[in-house]
Each structure stands twice: as C-alpha cells, then as structure tokens.
Computed example of a mutant assay.
Amino acid sequence: MKVNKKSYAFFFVCCALSGYFFWLSLRPVEIVAAHHRSSSFSDVIVRNFPFTDKGKIAWWLNNKEMLKEKYNVPNPNPDGSFYLNFWLFGDGYKELSKYDRLCFEDMNTKKNCIEKDIVFTVSYSKNMGTMFEAYDGTYRLQKNGEIVKYVSHSEAW
C-alpha cells in the first residue's frame, strides 16, 4: 500500500512540475525597453524569454520585423553589421552601485541600470552572416535558412 501512495505522490509532483514548465513556456515575451548604446550596438530588455536556444532563435526569426518597426532594433552600421543583446529585466531598473551593472546613458534618471543577466545575442557581419549566441552555444544562419551550431576552428582542435 505504501508503494502505491509513493507512486501516486511522485506522479502528482511530476505532473505539477510539467504543467508549471508548460505554463512558463506559453507566456508571451514582454519587451520592457530597447536601448541604443552606439551606432550598431543595441540592447533589448525582456521578461519571459524562451528557455531553449531553439525557442530563442525561433522567437527572433518570428519577431525581428516587429522589433525593427517598433523599437528600431537592430540599428545596423552602413555596412549592415549589428550587435543586439537581450537582457532579462529581473527586479527592474536600479541605481549604479558597487555591483557590476549595465547602465543606459539614454535614460535621464538615477535608476538606469540593470543586473547583467544576458539571455541571447544576435549579430550580423558580412564575413560571418547572422549569428546567434545562447546558453548552449553559438549558431549560424546559413544562406539556405538552416540553423547550424557553430564550431570555431580553435574549438575543432
């Protein structure tokens, strides 16, 4: 009888955790703000960003036109190159302190910094094309639309 109760309890916990993670994955990405640090470097502050590398890349591909229209990101150089970081908003904007925080000079307030919690980077250059950096690695968008995990020559050795 005890084995059955433990089995049911384990099953219930697994279902509850699965449901919770499923719910987390369905929440829409919230864009809090976009900041431009220089001509080709931009930062997007987000909440509820996808967990997986595949989910992050898919979200970018599905939303890059909206980001350009609504937030003017990325803001490429004349040669088309850009570097775009996505940061988690966490507990919100904070004042500069002894901790290493990312501060945005385009905000005229003391609370213009966030904790450095980067979740995704998209970059483009003529030599490398479109590159994605996420938790599990760096990926490259091929000309045929395929996304492959990038291995640099130094890593191949």
Rank of each mutant, 00 (worst) to 15 (best):
V73Q: 08
C113Q: 09
I114D: 01
N75H: 13
F120C: 09
F21N: 14
P28G: 00
F104T: 10
R101F: 02
D100F: 14
S39T: 15
L67R: 07
D106K: 15
T121K: 03
D79W: 15
E95S: 13
K98S: 12
F49N: 06
D79K: 12
L96K: 12
Y20D: 04
N77V: 07
T109R: 12
D117P: 06
P76I: 13
S18Y: 15
G19R: 06
K68Y: 11
Y99A: 14
F86M: 03
T52P: 06
D79T: 14
N62L: 03
C103Y: 10
T121H: 02
E69A: 06
Y20I: 08
P50Y: 00
K116R: 14
N62H: 10
V46F: 01
Y124S: 08
Y20M: 03
P78Q: 06
G90I: 07
K54H: 11
A33I: 02
R47V: 11
S97Q: 06
D100R: 15
C15Q: 01
P50F: 00
G55F: 08
E115W: 03
V44T: 04
T121D: 03
R47Q: 14
A58I: 11
P50L: 07
A33E: 04
L17Y: 13
F86H: 15
C14W: 09
P50R: 08
S81P: 05
A16W: 01
E115N: 10
G90R: 06
A58N: 05
I45G: 09
F12S: 15
W60M: 11
W59G: 04
F49M: 05
L88R: 06
A16K: 05
V46Y: 01
F21Y: 11
N75F: 09
G19Q: 05
K64H: 04
G55W: 01
W59L: 11
H36L: 09
G55K: 03
P50I: 07
Y124H: 10
I114R: 02
H36K: 13
D117F: 07
S38R: 08
G80S: 12
C15M: 15
P78I: 07
